[in-house]
Design a protein around this nucleic acid. Structure first.
Lengths: 359, 359
DNA sequence: CTCGAAATTGTTAACGTAAACATCCGTGGA
DNA sequence: TCCACGGATGTTTACGTTAACAATTTCGAG
């Protein structure tokens, strides 16, 4: 019963598309299944079946519904879907900033893999890494349309705020030692640092100086720890640590201090940017790299191979970290809870032109 | 009427928190307003009023509701809210990747400003910049829980896909010449390039060589155009363009070719990374910077001041671009539609040590 | 002490979707 | 010929929230 296709369809469609009764033609309300159903002359349940590709709809009906959808420009309402299904198909990513290469590459990988699994990602930036801010982010997150969260944050801060982590929210943490409480994915910082230091020792250097990252960073802490361990195990003297803040500029200042020390022939910088600063400091101090001083970085950022000289560094597989985060989190969401523990992504030393035997 | 506080509350709360009837204690269902209402002995509307801080709730009731909320760990369901209100408080950001410094810094600024306005941001990465992928992103976006979209994409591709841009979706575009169809926010590429080239000419160089970005990029196109214009207006010879792909490596190869040309005394690279490659090529070819050759970059990335030598470059205010994107989009969402047009963010030349008068 | 206005709280309905169940139709076997 | 069955489609309901309206309580003025 009822009218089929023909003129009626188009007119009705135009009425709906124009936004019924709204002057100016601006649509006030989106097209819903009911609208499509009315136009196609079926029930909204049938529209639902077509939209979800379910069986049990005869071809002719299906065709009609599809036409009506196209006619009206129907797009499903994800809020209603989320409400119905009780999930959002969205992953939240909490971080301090995208400024560091590592973070942005990890996030990119997360976004890509999440998309492949049908999940969108929502960025939750935390301004200053104060505890209040972290707490705020967690509170907001609780209300956020998110099925799980990936925390890319130095977890010192998380420690205090942890109590407020809403129960029932799935979490994966990157770059932290919270492995006893949450599933953690991280680069094998210690092994990377070990490779870097051994490489320099193997070249014949008596010992290796170290430009460390900020004290609050677990990654920095672990790289420094491994550096110290290798030296101690090899019975080498352990020079005092120069501390930077990941920036090239801080590396430069540390480098100036190191350049003043004639006994310094090998430097392990905790990241590539600080290594860049060290290179500049050595150059300005008239010390040749690698002839007089060798330098190793960490991260293998894209530019490292173009430094002067091209930088020997430890390659970090950020993409893999992102991939594992997503899969660990999705396992947690879909299946049984993942036990806490740390999933380590291996690193590789990339020898380039900034290292050589001591003079 | 009915029971108040006391033992009953806690027991009921525990039952709910534990996830009624689910063995193993894992809650299957989140706490809803109805649960809180039941525990507090009020209607769910009252809970709603308390949750939204509305007036007209007597202090004692309010207290009771808040207690119940805390007891149960209630958190509002944003899907239901979105459905009710017809908006998501979320902005989508479509981009090819976070790899480039510019993109990640713009996204960071977008995220920050969006958060300040109560909006979350959803990342929609597009793998390869093929038209199919862009189309796919747009389709997904249509179904996405998003009130508006910021497109950080070379819009050559958008051109073909534009027809499918769902009507009624608010858009702001970054870095494109789509200003006649959408509101666009962009760095003043042309002026930045002009400043760079003029700086070199003012130093006394006869002409300026150019390492351009990829042909598909509007930003690259505009920088190249301005470079050419300034030279022509000044009656200088216009050397052939060396084309790179934004990477330091491509800059290196371009630099090797330039280094072979003894008449080349000034180079304007379309971004800092390619400038880095040029510096390396010149160094390896034995040509001094800036004594023999001057180099200018574009972007002013964090590391540029630590290059050898520290790079003279054009500072781009990515944070401001992000800020304007968000506000333009929110204006569009909240108020009347914004007319198409381009909003230009000014640039500044930062003179450092890589430029000097010709030998 | 009574009445009515104001303040507080409760009830109903709707947002768009989809599972669960109900209904209708035609077909084939007894 | 009739009935049972299965496939196609329709109807009802619930997800969690809140606007709009209804009901109830409180309090002050006369």
């Amino acid at each position: 019963m009822g009218h089929r296709h023909g003129q009626g369809v188009t007119i009705e469609a135009q009425r709906l598309r124009a936004g019924s009764d709204v002057p100016g033609g601006r649509r006030k309300q989106r097209v819903s299944m009911a609208d499509v159903a009315r136009l196609a002359g079926v029930s909204s349940q049938t529209v639902s079946r077509v939209a979800n590709g379910q069986a049990g709809v005869v071809e002719s009906t299906r065709e009609q519904v599809l036409t009506a959808m196209r006619e009206l420009g129907y797009r499903p309402n994800s809020a209603a879907r989320s409400l119905r299904y009780g999930r959002f198909n969205t992953i939240g990513v909490i971080l301090f900033g995208l400024a560091s290469t590592g973070n942005s590459r990890t996030v990119e990988a997360i976004a890509t893999h999440a998309a492949a699994e049908g999940y969108a990602i929502t960025l939750i930036p935390v301004g200053m890494p104060t505890q209040d801010n972290v707490l705020g982010a967690f509170t907001r997150m609780g209300e956020l349309a998110v099925d799980g969260v990936i925390l890319i944050i130095e977890v010192h801060l998380l420690d205090a705020a942890a109590v407020t982590l809403p129960p029932g929210v799935h979490v994966v943490v990157v770059d932290s030692d919270a492995g006893d409480r949450y599933p953690v994915v991280d680069t094998d910082q210690a092994d990377g640092a070990r490779q870097a230091v051994r490489h320099l020792l193997d070249l014949g250097h008596r010992t290796v100086h170290h430009v460390a990252g900020p004290a609050e960073s677990y990654a920095a802490e672990r790289r420094t720890g491994a550096w110290r361990t290798v030296l101690e195990e090899s019975g080498r003297p352990v020079p005092p640590v120069e501390r930077g803040d990941w920036s090239a500029d801080s590396g430069y200042h540390a480098g100036l201090r190191l350049a003043a020390d004639p006994s310094c022939t090998a430097v392990f910088a905790a990241n590539d940017q600080m290594a860049l600063g060290v290179l500049r400091a050595l150059h300005e101090s008239g010390r040749q790299v690698p002839a007089e001083v060798s330098v190793v970085g960490f991260d293998d950022i894209a530019d490292a191979s173009s430094y002067l000289p091209p930088l020997t560094t430890v390659h970090q597989d950020f993409a893999e970290v992102g991939r594992r985060c997503v899969h660990l989190l999705l396992d947690q969401i879909h299946q049984e809870p993942t036990p806490p523990g740390t999933d380590l992504v291996p690193t590789t030393l990339i020898p380039r032109a900034s290292t050589a035997p001591p003079p």
